[in-house]
Design a protein around this nucleic acid. Structure first.
Lengths: 255, 255
DNA sequence: GTTTGTCCGTTTGTCCGACAATCATCATTA
DNA sequence: TAATGATGATTGTCGGACAAACGGACAAAC
């Protein structure tokens, strides 16, 4: 075999035309040539400028749409947009669910993220944030009195705390986990009678600490709350290492 | 104005055909009808079964591809896949960068996530993980001796630690942050002469602690390391609250 | 003067039919 | 047996086409 002189070759990259359309537009958006809010040219015009068929342009555009970099304005013209975590979080949740992530894995992250969120919320929450939390607390109380499951409201409470933290990296990191984790309450509540009351108490304490700008108390109650969640899960006899399931989407994923 | 009796209307949903194709296939994948690894029918066949044109099917497929739910095998046929964070993390990073997230916001998350990763890594790393860290350590040493920037290798080291933690939720949560945060080293290193050496020492300690299954030491050194990173950033006179920029992609984003 | 109905040019969503390039497969050849 | 070539299936791209929906302008009706 003396005829293969250590020749190192890498796969020659061949990009489909619609991919190049997508990448080119993406690049223009990311480098600021196209700013959020700008209107894109019509499909016909894009096709002419790129020198490809309109069908090809459309396939590229689908990709951009899916990434949340462009949206269709009320009317029809394409408009450059900033991707929202409304688009991203459910997708990450799905990837986690499809990877058969266990309750324990999610919990291990939540138990550090949520207390951090509470601490930052105590530092940064504004009056509007507090009002939303109050509204959520009341709704949770009613829901419990009516004997229904507060799972969705708990998910929301955690999200509201994270929103109050004024840290978008935190918000975006924890959202996919919250989306997968708290629906597990749905299964837990009926099995652990005292869970609902404990949850409400914890939420109240967390809210009060945030309102009073008491970072440490907010942190500790949230930590306790998340630990409590795990304990309830074990108490109910649910397996920590079983994969979680993807909940029904509350709001339809971005399109 | 008594002629508007609290009438609440929501926008009537009209779904384009390609959207329905996308949603239907997505549903089949998520509910398990189509399992990872399964081959999808050909575009022609999909078009016939959905009763739409092949072009329409193709637009829907682009969406699925973008979500990582389906890939083109080496050949051509579409294959159902599990979305990887290779697809997801860069997108989340972009969303963060476009939202003008500050160094401080990223750091606040990193300072709790990375030590957690180190602790779990000390508990769960296997021999292959350790070998990769060793390789990374050596490369970092060489890079520093050569006077080049270890930014990319640092990003990789943190990723390797997270991989060793055997927690996919953690891995997926921290990756977008790491991707945005550590490239800031590129700007930092030339300004803080001792930074490179300190970084290498920290990496070594973290590696040793993980190897020795010493969770607390791994945790503390990683915490120290991340705190050190921030101190270096401040020392260099870089503003904590300025938005970070999106780094050049090391590997082209999934497609 | 404001609302409603109508028209028109533009743009999108969808369809049809077609072709070259590429891939998977298998029979053929050295 | 392993390399080579032929064959059929499938994708990527194209050009052209049309109905539906939109934005805007204008006229008619209240």
């Amino acid at each position: 075999m003396g005829d293969t002189p250590e020749l190192e070759l890498r796969r020659v990259q061949v990009h489909a035309a619609y991919e190049q359309v997508w990448r080119e537009l993406e690049k223009r958006i990311l480098d600021g040539t196209l700013q959020a809010g700008d209107r894109l040219p019509t499909e016909m015009e894009l096709a002419q400028r790129f020198g490809v068929n309109r069908s090809t342009v459309r396939e590229g555009i689908r990709r951009l749409e899916s990434e949340g970099l462009v949206r269709r304005a009320s009317g029809r013209r394409l408009v450059v947009a900033v991707p929202s975590y409304g688009d991203l979080a459910p997708r990450t949740s799905r990837a986690l669910a499809m990877s058969q992530v266990s309750f324990l894995e999610l919990w291990q992250v939540a138990v550090v993220m949520e207390p951090l969120a509470a601490r930052l919320a105590a530092a940064n929450a504004n009056e509007a944030d507090l009002a939303e939390m109050r509204r959520n607390l009341e709704a949770t109380g009613e829901t419990l009195r009516a004997g229904r499951s507060p799972a969705r409201l708990d998910t929301e409470f955690q999200r509201l705390v994270a929103q109050s933290a004024k840290n978008r990296a935190l918000e975006l990191s924890r959202e996919p986990i919250g989306l997968l984790l708290y629906p597990a309450l749905e299964a837990l509540i009926p099995l652990v009678p005292q869970a609902g009351e404990r949850l409400l108490v914890a939420h109240r304490r967390i809210y009060e600490a945030i309102r009073d700008r008491d970072e440490d108390t907010a942190y500790h109650w949230m930590h306790k709350h998340v630990v409590d969640f795990r304990r309830g899960y074990e108490l109910a006899g649910l397996p920590l290492d079983a994969p979680v399931r993807m909940p029904e989407p509350a709001s339809p994923p971005g399109g």
